[in-house]
Amino acid sequence: MKILRQSGSRKYIILFIMLCSFLILWPNHSKSIAASTLQKVYDNASLLTDEERQDLEKMCDTYGDSNNTDIIIITEDSIGNQTTKLYLEKFYDQNIKKASAYDGNCALLLITMDESNRGFQIQGYGDNPNSTQYYLDGERIDHIISKVKPLLSNGKYYDAMKQYINMVDDYVGMKYQHIYNQLWFQLLVSLGIGTIAVSIMIFNSGGKVTVNSGTYLDQNHSKILDQRDDYIRTTITRTEKPKNNDNGGDSSGTSPGGSSHSGGGSSF
């Protein structure tokens, strides 16, 4: 009777472990947590028509919600003496950080039309390893810049903003294409954990092993017979120092409010 009870308990333990494993992995499969209510397009420089602004606002909402990311666009006639990098950092701290529905995940684009400081800046925010900052790293931001800059230079502001939104969607959306976010993979991992648990129980159900590496060793007569230490070669490698790119270089950093971000920008 006691043996039957132990067997039944083991079955329940196995089922419990498998269920917990599945529940832990399951949330990663869900894309959207809650829709953002933040304004997405701030056209303070009046570069867009009302129709274009509304269209971009809708795109930011749609793509942002599908990727748990606030996608923001800001245009300004002037930002004074501050840099585009600092302007976006302050904007994030004051308008996004506490109001975000996506744990601070955000992609920001600033376009400033000031003749003495005409340019644009892109930044990605998020504090966890699966964040917008991670998927919108410096190299990818540089790629976005290379596509957006020619459009801005030709006065195609609406097209440039659409290009930015689409590329953010492409890059940030990659986190939902990873194998560990696929349902079949999550089920397979859960099954694997359950199998391991069963194997451990079966292994522990046998007799205890009492033989080890020292059981038949004669400590008084056993010794090392020979020892060698031969020098082979020394290898030296050199890495070329990275060159500054044409897009204004990496402007990642930390905002005054303590939020880390990726970033990059250029004049146009």
Results as ranks from 00 to 15, higher is better:
residue 161 M to W: 09
residue 38 L to R: 13
residue 175 K to P: 13
residue 252 S to M: 05
residue 196 I to A: 05
residue 21 S to I: 01
residue 120 F to C: 01
residue 94 Q to Y: 04
residue 231 Y to P: 10
residue 173 G to M: 10
residue 93 D to G: 15
residue 19 L to V: 04
residue 252 S to I: 02
residue 60 C to H: 13
residue 51 E to I: 05
residue 159 D to G: 06
residue 52 E to L: 10
residue 107 A to E: 14
residue 253 G to I: 02
residue 103 D to L: 01
residue 129 P to G: 05
residue 104 G to R: 12
residue 85 K to S: 10
residue 69 T to C: 06
residue 10 R to F: 05
residue 46 S to M: 05
residue 60 C to R: 14
residue 129 P to T: 05
residue 172 V to Q: 00
residue 195 T to F: 03
residue 203 F to E: 04
residue 38 L to F: 09
residue 226 D to S: 15
residue 148 V to R: 07
residue 28 N to Q: 09
residue 196 I to P: 00
residue 15 L to M: 06
residue 252 S to N: 03
residue 183 L to N: 13
residue 236 I to A: 05
residue 103 D to P: 00
residue 114 D to W: 09
residue 216 Y to I: 05
residue 4 L to K: 15
residue 77 D to V: 01
residue 46 S to T: 15
residue 248 G to F: 00
residue 117 N to M: 03
residue 173 G to E: 08
residue 155 G to L: 15
residue 203 F to N: 04
residue 55 D to R: 04
residue 100 S to Y: 11
residue 210 T to V: 00
residue 130 N to F: 00
residue 191 L to F: 00
residue 264 G to A: 12
residue 64 G to M: 01
residue 197 A to M: 03
residue 194 G to T: 08
residue 122 I to S: 08
residue 126 G to E: 03
residue 121 Q to R: 11
residue 161 M to G: 03
residue 208 K to A: 01
residue 222 S to V: 13
residue 61 D to W: 10
residue 184 W to P: 14
residue 15 L to F: 06
residue 112 T to A: 03
residue 151 L to Y: 10
residue 157 Y to K: 10
residue 89 E to Y: 04
residue 176 Y to M: 01
residue 218 D to K: 06
residue 56 L to V: 00
residue 213 S to P: 04
residue 197 A to P: 01
residue 25 L to N: 00
residue 87 Y to M: 06
residue 152 L to G: 07
residue 6 Q to C: 11
residue 237 T to K: 13
residue 233 R to S: 11
residue 131 S to Q: 10
residue 6 Q to M: 13
residue 34 A to L: 01
residue 214 G to V: 00
residue 219 Q to K: 08
residue 34 A to R: 09
residue 111 I to V: 10
residue 60 C to S: 15
residue 26 W to K: 00
residue 239 T to F: 02
residue 192 G to L: 11
residue 156 K to Y: 12
residue 138 G to W: 02
residue 179 I to K: 15
residue 96 I to A: 15
residue 8 G to W: 05
residue 214 G to H: 02
residue 237 T to Y: 04
residue 76 E to S: 12
residue 59 M to C: 11
residue 123 Q to D: 08
residue 90 K to I: 06
residue 214 G to M: 01
residue 109 L to V: 14
residue 76 E to L: 06
residue 15 L to V: 02
residue 184 W to G: 11
residue 252 S to H: 07
residue 227 Q to S: 15
residue 39 Q to S: 07
residue 96 I to S: 15
